[in-house]
Computed example of a mutant assay.
Amino acid sequence: MSNNQSFEEKYPNLSDFVYYQGKIEIGYDENTGSFVMAYDEGGTVYIGEDEYETMEDALADLEAGITQYLEENGIDLKA
């Protein structure tokens, strides 16, 4: 991550999702076989891969997964 870019700028949907709607888990989970997951009150929003080369890769995947979920469901977290 660039020193000039905040976490919120780099991962806007991930940041907003955690702030307004849900939670995330980072760390390998034996039950799901994933390293990153996102949940909201309705259940599981995104299940990531079982491993990543870097934490940056894991966060980028989580951002992409949450972005796709929000777009597919027409959710605007700041509305």
Rank of each mutant, 00 (worst) to 15 (best):
N73K: 06
T67V: 06
L70F: 02
G33S: 06
L62M: 14
S15Q: 07
M1V: 12
S34M: 02
N13I: 00
M1K: 06
D29F: 01
E49Q: 14
D57N: 14
G65I: 13
G27K: 09
T54A: 13
G22T: 04
F7A: 09
L59H: 10
E25Y: 13
K23R: 13
G74C: 11
I26L: 15
S6L: 09
T54Y: 05
E72I: 01
E71Q: 14
Y20Q: 09
G22V: 10
L77N: 02
E9L: 07
S6D: 04
S15L: 00
F35E: 13
S34C: 15
I66N: 09
N3C: 01
V36N: 10
Y69N: 03
T67W: 02
A38N: 04
A38F: 07
Y28I: 08
G42C: 09
F17K: 10
A79H: 05
Q21R: 15
Y20T: 03
K78V: 08
N13W: 01
G33E: 08
P12I: 01
A60D: 15
Y28T: 11
Y39C: 07
V45G: 12
A79P: 12
I26R: 07
K23E: 14
A64E: 14
T32S: 15
E49V: 00
S34H: 03
K10P: 00
N73V: 07
S2Q: 08
Y19K: 12
T54K: 11
Y11W: 03
E25D: 14
